[in-house]
Amino acid sequence: MTRYSKNHIWIRYENDIAEIGITEYAAEKLGNIMFVNLPDTGEELVCGERFGDVESIKTVSDLISPIYGEVTEVNETLTDEPEIISDDPAGTWFIKARIKNFSDELMSEEEYNSLKESL
């Protein structure tokens, strides 16, 4: 199942295990991504708070967690090759996490698409 946050983060999950990345919309807005800072495995995720950030050619932007949980895996490839994010944002996870709780505000793809159109 895939859900989206208003901060343009996607979360794909099965049972309590999730992959988290940024949406195509976010990747387009950012432009070329040059750096990614990610948390360490074992770090706690707090819904609505930053778990990392990206520096693109345009800006430095915080990554906001859509869940409460714990980081179980970090995509280290992104530290060396951040450019792969822009090639396939929907298929590139930043972290994997064990979910404790969701945000109430997560959206379906349809809801997220209408949010994008309103921006």
Partner: peptide, 9 residues
């Protein structure tokens, strides 16, 4: 240069 934090830029 630019950065954002939460809902502010």
């Amino acid at each position: 240069a630019v950065y954002d934090s939460g809902e502010k830029v």
